[in-house]
Design a binder for these strands. Structure first.
Length: 565
RNA sequence: UGGGGCGUAGCCAAGUGGUAAGGCAACGGGUUUUGAUCCCGUGAUUCGCAGGUUCGAUCCCUGCCGCCCCAGCCA
């Protein structure tokens, strides 16, 4: 049990406190939770918070967690999403073993519970139209009024309900309602609908059913059937808790789970509601659910986020009941933290500027053997070829350097990382006046690792041999939205107005160290001085690799320079 | 102006009667052949506001203010 948290994590949250108490007091022998997504979309980082809570606490307290699909609405749900969701949960590092369930597994039991309710006079078949039901429900400030069918004999309701099941009626003809209180200040308690007729094929039960239970009726009972002890959900279900409890109390439930609500995740510069995510996909603002700019688990995975970074993020933000808007830097920093420790280093020149080292022999090539990781010699070394012509980063050279700039400039010296110190002798321009090439001289005494290297040079830049490199495409991503809370200053709340139209920058002339050819595909690399990059699993071809930038390195200089302006 | 929640530093988040943990960000310094990493240091006389109870209140009481959710045969 996680008694004491590690020092850099928030203290144990209120839900874990409740669980711990319930276990210590003997109220429960062991913990049972569940992660209950509806298969009508892909999982996003907000779901990761729930996965981490449900599966994570089960793990910590040596309990179990069910992987349950809440598939009670055949109109909206698709089998395709089930697979994606399972893949995502697995990727997050959790396993459900034999505990993969579907609410639809319980349709028969649920039906029996419904009959029980009818027989006890706690539910009735409603024969008004949806419109009439809506009209008589009342408003936030006015009570609703009783349905004329509310007091029909339970035998009649039972017959009708059985006929509903048998397919005697059309969609919308009747509905099953709980008999609670039409004057309740809580609208959820005003005789909520429990079952509706839907003559459609269900992705799992096929044509077996034409009546389907609604969420409120299904969820608590599914929890009870599975022996869930703590049913954790988001805040918008707080108002439903009285109904959740009512249903469990009125029926002979196998056990009484406790529903506890926590606040959902919001991240600055992003949207996380399923509705909005679908909009982005369907209207083509992104290439799909797994677009690396999407904060879906599949998008993050494709972008190069390790699951451990997402788990760290979930731990770091904590669990509470207050509205929260997490800064993007928290997520990014989690990725940096994990990736810095694990990523092999490579040099890659994104925007190449050719450099000719005039005093280096034309036909000579020498190899340097730097470590793959500066602090982990056990990761080994790589072979980096050096030659007379190399590429450096265009942005590492300034004709007219600003103060405190310690990269390359005319007449200045800089160290080529792992190689030599060079001096810029001459700048060559193209016909448009743009810098196209640099002529430099190197100092053989400054060879990396040599005893004579002595000289300290402040500026260190990365480079790639022009004779020996792999040409790759690199995709630089930025946040998908330009405002911290998309749609917040629009009266209609239209988040599409705040789309960042520069969220992707594709560079196709990037020069990468040949070492890449010896490395595995599934690794995230650090391109030194730039950031972390992951080979795109979808768009990469054997001879045309594509790399996604997972996250930049922290860039103190960029910040400094921006402040100077 | 019905009901349910929430309000502690820029962003998260503990604490719930004894005098404000921690993380991220920010800032300052050190190390460094990544302006990265790493290390060290700096922040709330104050807990939405106003009263009250108390020797003492972020924590209890009263009133007020602000924000979020609910009127699907969605989940």
């Amino acid at each position: 049990m996680n008694e004491s948290n590690s020092p850099d994590l928030p203290a144990i949250d209120f839900i874990r406190s409740i669980i711990r108490e319930d276990l210590e007091s003997g109220k429960h022998q062991s913990l049972v939770t569940r992660f209950p997504p509806e298969p009508n979309g892909h999982l996003h980082i907000g779901h990761a918070k729930s996965i981490q809570l449900n599966f994570g606490t089960a793990e910590e307290f040596k309990g179990i967690c069910f992987m349950r699909f809440d598939d009670t609405n055949p109109l909206k749900e698709e089998e395709e999403y089930v697979e994606g969701i399972l893949e995502d949960v697995k990727w997050m590092g959790y396993e459900w073993k034999e505990r993969l369930t579907y609410a639809s597994d319980y349709f028969e039991k649920l039906y029996e519970f419904a009959e029980e309710l009818i027989k006890k006079g706690k539910a009735y078949v409603e024969s008004q139209s949806a419109e009439e039901i809506r009209r008589t429900r009342g408003t936030l400030t006015e009570p609703g009024i009783n349905s004329p069918y509310r007091d029909r004999r339970f035998e009649e309701s039972l017959t009708l309900f059985r006929q509903m099941r048998a397919g005697k009626f059309d969609d919308g003809d009747h509905v099953l309602r709980a008999k609670i209180d039409m004057t309740s200040p809580n609208i959820n308690m005003r005789d909520p609908v429990l079952y509706r007729i839907r003559k459609v094929i269900h992705q799992r039960t096929g044509k077996k059913w034409c009546i389907y239970p609604l969420y409120d009726f299904t969820h608590g009972l599914s929890d009870a059937i599975e022996g869930v002890t703590h049913s954790l959900c988001t805040l918008e279900f707080e108002d439903h808790r009285p109904l959740y409890e009512w249903i469990l109390a009125e029926v002979t439930a196998p056990c009484i789970p406790r529903q506890i609500e926590f606040s959902r995740l919001n991240l600055h510069y992003s949207v996380l509601s399923k509705r909005k995510l679908i909009k982005l996909v369907e209207d083509g603002y992104v290439s799909g659910w797994d677009d690396p700019r999407m904060l879906t688990l599949s998008g993050l995975r494709r972008r190069g986020y390790p699951p451990s970074a997402i788990r760290l993020f979930c731990e770091r933000i904590g669990i509470s009941k207050s509205e929260n808007n997490i800064e993007m830097s928290v997520l990014e920093n989690c990725a940096r933290e994990i990736l810095d420790k694990s990523s092999p280093r490579l040099m890659c020149v994104l925007k190449p500027l050719k450099v000719v080292i005039t005093n280096y022999p034309e036909d000579k090539t020498e190899n340097f053997h730097p470590a793959k990781h500066p602090k982990k010699p056990e990761m080994g070394t790589r072979k980096v070829p050096f030659s007379r012509e190399i590429y450096i980063e265009y942005e590492d050279f300034r004709e007219d350097p600003p103060p405190n700039y310690f990269r390359f400039a005319p007449g200045k010296e800089v160290r080529l990382r792992y190689a030599y110190v060079i001096r810029c002798d001459k700048v060559i321009y193209d016909s448009t006046g743009r810098v196209s090439e640099l002529h430099c001289t190197y100092d053989p005494k400054t060879r990396s690792g040599a005893k004579t290297e002595g000289r300290k040079v402040k500026g260190i830049i990365h480079w790639v041999s022009a004779k020996n490199f792999i040409q790759v495409e690199v995709r630089l991503y930025d946040r998908l939205f330009a405002k911290p809370i998309p749609g917040s200053d629009d009266p209609e709340g239209n988040f599409l107005n705040d789309i960042n139209h520069n969220s992707i920058d594709i560079l196709s002339e990037c020069k990468l160290e040949p070492e890449i050819m010896t490395s595995a595909n599934k690794e995230v690399f650090q391109f030194e001085r730039i950031g972390y990059f992951f080979k795109d699993p979808k768009d990469s071809l054997e001879d045309a690799m594509v790399f996604n930038r997972t996250v930049t390195l922290r860039d103190t200089w960029a910040k400094l320079e921006q402040e100077q302006h």
